[in-house]
Design a protein around this nucleic acid. Sequence first.
DNA 1: AAGCTCATCAACCGCCCTTAG
DNA 2: TCTAAGGGCGGTTGATGAGCT
Length: 337
Amino acid sequence: MEEHMILWRKGPWTAEEDRLLTEHVKLHGEGRWNSVTRLAGLKRNAKSCRLRWVNYLRPDLKRGKITPYEEKIILNLHAQWGNRWSTIARSLPGRTDNEIKNYWRTHFKKKGQMSSNDSAKLRARLLKRQKFQQEQHNQLQLQKNKEDMKNLLLLLEESNNKVVWRHQDMVHEEMSTVLYPIMFNDSQRVVETNSMYEDFVLWDGLWNLEDVPIATTKGLGEWCETEKLSPEPLFESSLPLFRPPLFEGRDVYILGAANVGKSAFINALLKWTLYEQVANAALDCQCLEVAKDNCDHLPLEIDEYELVDPVDILTPLEKLGFWNGMRLVNLEYSILT
DNA sequence: AAGCTCATCAACCGCCCTTAG
DNA sequence: TCTAAGGGCGGTTGATGAGCT
């Protein structure tokens, strides 16, 4: 009854009001906002107090601009959840639903049709990612075989064995000899199994080999032995160190360095993993850490050093074709989980 | 310099859900 | 079971400042 007689203050909060509210919360904790007015001497209603605390005074709030990485999270989550701002905010510690909502409306809402297109693309991305993850899950049974293969690779590396490549003659010199590993010397092990074929379907979908604009003289389906990788030491200290990518909660990271040559990349892949595993790793991880240096092939803007969604790299690369994908070796990047 | 436009964001509003009595 | 209080959430408004003409 008494409350109806109170003229609640509205509008911007003063420093004194902030101080009173902060003191009150320190003493009594969050909640019971209706009592704030009485106990703290504020002429604000309960909702106003709660909002002020939640959106502005809370000590764990992150100040400053939304980072590109946060923006990508917002975009992805909005594609997934729509306008469920509080749900999105839970994935961004220190950011409030109000802040995210405002950011979205400011930066994306007005783009109208374009944003809906983006949203559709993002949904497609998410579906694609989910598909990859599902594929990966389905292929867990094959994991052991791949682990064996990896071990074999290590053995091969040590014994300087021959590697069989799938070769495509490339017009561009840069692309003339880079290959992706399929199988090993027959004497060691032929890994052209159904599972490998499925893996290639998967990989081919990622890089869209059929869309490679550069002519090849050998058929896409043609397998041939072409070259042996260099027996010299695989890595200098600054060269990339690839670790076996994911698989069910295992740490995944790929550390690269600037000016990494493609052979080093290939060797690294040979040393540690298969392409599709790298692809899955990239798609499965949260972000890539990308440095500006030597990433001019990246299909997105990089400011200094930042985290990006791997999909933002891989999806455009998919359109460029497999060989351009190899340019990833020129990046300094890491995959984090 | 003045006026206008636009972006930004704090704050408010109304609806809804949960919970306690 | 009903009701009111408390609180969460998404949509909207309005003040402010920066940039442009």
